[in-house]
Every structure is written in C-alpha cells, then in structure tokens.
Amino acid sequence: MVTSFSITRVFAFWDRLNSSFWFVPALMVVVAVALSFLLIEVDTLRDVGRTDDANAFYTFGPEGARSILSVIATSMITVASLIFSITMLSLQLASLQFGPRVLDNFMRDRSNQIVLGTFIATFLYCLFVLRSVRGMEGASFVPHLAVGFGVVLAAASVAVLIYFIHHIATSIRIETLLAKLAREGCAAVDCLFDERPEQGAGYQMPDGFDASELWGHTT
C-alpha cells in the first residue's frame, strides 16, 4: 500500500513537472551548455581553432567571432523578452474575453515552451562559446565549429520566431479554444467510462445477501 502510494506521488510530481512552463526550457538550456563545451573540445582536438590554419572552413579571426557571438546573444535575449512581454499582454486581454483558461493553455502549451527554450538556449550557448575565444598574441584560439553552430542556432531561432507568431495568433482564436475544450472534455469522458467497467467487474455482493429475495420482490 505504501509502495503504490509512493509511486502515485512520483507520477503526480512528474506530471506537474512535465507540464510546468520552465521544465522543457531548462532541459534545452542544459543541452545547449553541454553542447557548447563538446564542440569547443572538438575544435581543440582537431586544432581547427588556429587562426593561421589555411584549411579551416571558417576564416574569421577572434574579433569576428566575438562580434558574431555577441550579436546573436544580444538579439536572442532581446527578442525573447520583447516577444513574450507582448504575448503576455495579448493573452491578458484575451483572458478578459474568453476566461482565464487562455493563460493556462499558454503555460501548458509545449510549443510555447520549446520557443522560449530555443531563445534562451541559443543565448547561453553563445555566451559559453564566447568565453573560449582568445585573441592574444601567441595564444589565439577561435572555435570555428562552435561559432558556426551558433550561426545555425540563430537561423533556427528566426524560423521558430516566425512559427511562434503564427501559433500564438491561432491559439487565442475562439474556435481554437472551443476545439481544445471539446478534446479535453471527450478525453475526460473516455477516461471516466473506461474506468467504470473495471469497477463494476470488481464489485462483490455483501455477505449474507440472498439473490432469491431480490427475485421474490420483483415477481
């Protein structure tokens, strides 16, 4: 009994954690930071970071790498703060018309969590790669592979931004909210009726009950 109760509490905690607004972005941030260290280490092992290497697939120096990473990091955190501030204002106005469920749907929406995680992960990735760029004489190092992947993340963030604008404009429409409520209601009804036959199959008559008495009363 204690074991089943503990397992139930663990599953309930995992469900609350998985549906929270910060869980998925936190996982994406951890992956981005780990990836930055991994790519820097790969650049170090391959010796791609030397600025005088003619075979390097990127030819920018330390100052160019710093400029690119600084621009990406600054733009990511600026866009994230601006977009989500405007979005929260729009959702607040929509919740006054359609009810507070709009805000709850926004917080639990996996797409919104991924969008926020993309911006923050790209920002922190660029910061951690930026700290590894060295431009001193005799000790210059530019992680070209890591910087190039930062550019790829920036391009992906632009695509995610376009998707987010479309997604949030669609999610606050009344027909979308009604369709989501209908799906949640149908899922709740299906779950309820799936449990009823099991409860009925496991039901036992109380001790001392005589079924003939029931037939006698009904005939």
Rank of each mutant, 00 (worst) to 15 (best):
E198L: 14
A154M: 05
I165S: 02
F98G: 11
G99D: 01
S6I: 14
R196M: 14
L181I: 02
S70G: 09
L35H: 08
A182M: 07
D15S: 06
F209Y: 15
A32F: 11
T219C: 15
S6N: 07
L127Y: 10
L192G: 04
L39F: 08
V102M: 11
A159N: 00
R101V: 14
G135I: 01
E63S: 10
F23H: 04
Y58C: 00
F60E: 00
E213I: 07
F5I: 14
G99C: 10
L214W: 09
P62W: 08
L214E: 05
I68P: 03
R66P: 02
G138M: 04
G61P: 04
S67F: 15
I40F: 02
S132W: 01
L124V: 10
T218W: 11
D104P: 00
L39N: 02
G138I: 06
G200I: 14
T59F: 05
V30I: 15
L181D: 15
V115P: 09
R16K: 15
T8G: 06
F60K: 06
G117K: 01
R131P: 03
V33C: 04
G61K: 06
R196Y: 13
F11W: 13
L192V: 01
L161S: 11
P100K: 07
A187R: 11
I172Q: 05
L153C: 14
H166L: 12
R16M: 13
P25N: 13
Q92N: 08
M107A: 00
P206C: 13
T78P: 01
A188K: 02
I72P: 08
D15Q: 11
L130Y: 12
G61R: 00
C191A: 15
A159P: 05
P206T: 07
P62N: 03
T118F: 05
F164R: 09
R50F: 07
T74L: 11
D207N: 09
T122P: 03
T74Y: 07
E41A: 05
F106R: 01
V24R: 07
A73T: 00
H167Q: 12
R131I: 05
N18H: 12
F37D: 11
T118H: 10
V48L: 08
V24D: 01
T176R: 06
S157I: 01
S81A: 12
V147Y: 00
L17C: 04
P100A: 10
R183A: 02
D207A: 06
L27Y: 03
S212L: 10
G200S: 06
P143Q: 03
P100M: 02
G208W: 03
D109M: 08
V30C: 02
D43K: 08
G200W: 12
F23M: 12
V102L: 14
T74F: 10
V158E: 04
I83L: 15
G185H: 14
T78V: 12
V142D: 11
T118N: 10
A201T: 05
Q199P: 08
S132T: 02
E198A: 14
R101C: 11
D52K: 01
R196T: 06
